[in-house]
């Protein structure tokens, strides 16, 4: 049995919606099979008004043991650091977040906003949003770089816009079943088990990536989205093509370029004119190259690949 409290700050509910798509285990399985007791959740909680406040206060006082505190959305500091743009149960949400994080055994940040600040923190960041322990790439965030929860771990970050439900439920089950010790986190405090491989790992367009065949416009039946359409799959850490979305697909499989939403810079280039769905180039070469590849190597690789490409690589492959 583990008590879980889930709150939303500067959020769109997208992670809650994604969470409800979970399959193994499903959101209901978490409760019925794994003994996770959901104290309250904004979209699902039974209580309203002062009865919600009473739950939060009991968690902070220790009257209710708070095992897992899940936070979705950014920590809103505006205006002028007061947090008044996001108040909840009569107080700035940021004050609840501070006290509940200190009271919790484990703190889990779900989605980009809780991890890095996310879309609300996009320039000019009108809501003065922060992630729990990061603002974009910068360590610290709202709780500070040194924060650890009662169990001795920093915030466990599950980024993504939204996070995949299985990334969420599997971490919750691991914590609830006493396997938190097996968790290893990377520099952004993301579970390595999910965020060491690339979005490109497992992508159905890998052959066209290798043979340098581009999807030059949307709606085509061949090619890789990296060369023209701004796909960030080779530079982004996520298991999107290992653990499929909604059981069936992924953005890159469907023909949508990866936006790099598990990385701190998302949305990249602050959505400046000319950057959306377009590969950024300099003198005919992509500015952002696959992770670990330098420009010289990239050019050599391209020349070799072009020379070696088989005839079938020039044909449609995802045919009707």
């Amino acid at each position: 049995m583990a008590n879980l409290l889930w709150l939303q700050g500067g959020a769109c509910s997208g992670n809650t919606m994604s969470f409800l798509n979970a399959e193994e285990p499903s959101a209901c399985d978490l409760v019925t099979d794994f003994g996770i007791n959901v104290l309250w959740q904004p979209s699902l909680g039974l209580e309203l008004g002062d009865n919600v406040k009473a739950i939060l206060e009991k968690c902070i006082s220790g009257e209710i043991q708070l095992d897992i505190f899940v936070f979705e959305g950014s920590v809103v500091n505006a205006p002028d650091g007061t947090g008044n743009w996001n108040r909840f149960c009569g107080r700035p949400m940021k004050e609840w977040v501070r006290e509940l994080s200190d009271a919790a055994q484990f703190v889990v940040g779900i989605g980009d906003c809780a991890t890095y600040g996310g879309i609300p923190a996009t320039a000019p960041n009108p809501s003065e949003s922060q992630g729990l322990q990061f603002l974009k790439r910068e360590h610290g965030g709202f709780l500070g770089a040194d924060f650890t929860s009662k169990a001795g771990l920093p915030v466990i970050n599950i980024p993504g816009c939204p996070a995949h439900p299985d990334w969420v439920t599997q971490i919750l089950v691991a914590v609830a079943t006493g396997r938190a010790g097996d968790l290893t986190l990377d520099e952004f405090q993301r579970p390595k088990t999910f965020f060491s491989s690339f979005t490109q790992t497992g992508c159905t367009r890998n052959m066209h990536f290798a043979y340098k065949v581009s999807t030059t416009a949307f709606g085509q039946r061949k090619g890789c989205l990296f060369y023209d359409l701004g796909c960030r799959g080779p530079m982004t850490h996520s298991p999107c093509n290992r653990i499929l979305w909604n059981r069936v697909s992924s953005k890159t499989r469907a023909g949508m370029p990866c936006l790099g939403c598990t990385e701190p810079e998302f949305p990249f280039f602050d959505l400046a004119p000319g950057t959306v769905f377009k590969t950024q180039t300099m003198m005919g070469v992509p500015k952002d190259l696959p992770e670990g590849v330098d420009k010289k190597g990239y050019i050599k690789l391209t020349a070799a690949a072009k020379g070696a490409a088989p005839a079938w690589a020039e044909e449609d492959i995802f045919v009707v």
Partner: peptide, 24 residues
């Protein structure tokens, strides 16, 4: 899941673009 077949995932795909859709 049908949304994901068209747009790769739900929620938060951007598969609808001016001029049509990204998928085929």
């Amino acid at each position: 899941e049908i949304y994901a077949l068209l747009g790769g995932q739900w929620p938060h795909s951007s598969y609808m673009v001016p001029g049509g859709v990204m998928c085929a």
